[in-house]
């Protein structure tokens, strides 16, 4: 079957529209992650993820994140108490919960952290995040 030329010409156009939408979606989630980070995390973990002295652990180039990416979502939602060791230093200062954040918002924050501040941890899918959040304790 042969398609008329005018129909064929539509394919590249569709292809580019798809690419554009994909990009928009990607940057939108990235941007949301960044905005949410600024709103909910930056006051303690600081704008560049540097943390504070021996009080608040850094997120920048944090070995803990590379080793425990599946725990990030739970900590964002429920906070954390007790000791945590990051880049060779031990921190022990309670982190408050953020119960107001939705699964999608936590997904975007998690991926923003995992792929910024010098971290190169593979991003988590939405399915992984919802699963992470079901297994919090």
């Amino acid at each position: 079957m042969r398609l008329p030329k005018s129909v064929l010409a539509v394919f590249p156009v569709l292809f580019f529209i798809g690419l554009l939408l994909g990009n928009l979606f990607f940057f939108k989630t990235q941007e949301q992650g960044q905005k949410l980070y600024a709103q909910h995390c930056a006051s303690c973990h600081m704008e560049k993820g540097e943390g504070l002295a021996n009080l608040i652990p850094p997120l920048a180039e944090a070995d803990w994140l590379a080793q425990n990416p599946e725990k990030v979502a739970c900590i964002i939602r429920y906070g954390q108490t007790g000791e945590v060791r990051v880049n060779g230093k031990t921190y022990n200062h309670p982190m408050p919960a953020n119960l107001q954040l939705s699964d999608t918002e936590i997904h975007n924050i998690t991926n923003f952290i995992l792929s910024n501040f010098g971290n190169k941890v593979s991003k988590r899918t939405f399915e992984q995040i919802t699963k992470d959040l079901r297994t919090c304790h």
């Binding site: 006051s43 303690c44 600081m46 504070l52 002295a53 009080l55 608040i56 309670p94 408050p96």
Partner: peptide
């Protein structure tokens, strides 16, 4: 235990 502005204040006071 202030989760809002205090850590930033302390970073600056440091």
């Amino acid at each position: 235990t202030c989760p809002s502005i205090c850590p930033k204040m302390k970073q600056q006071m440091l």
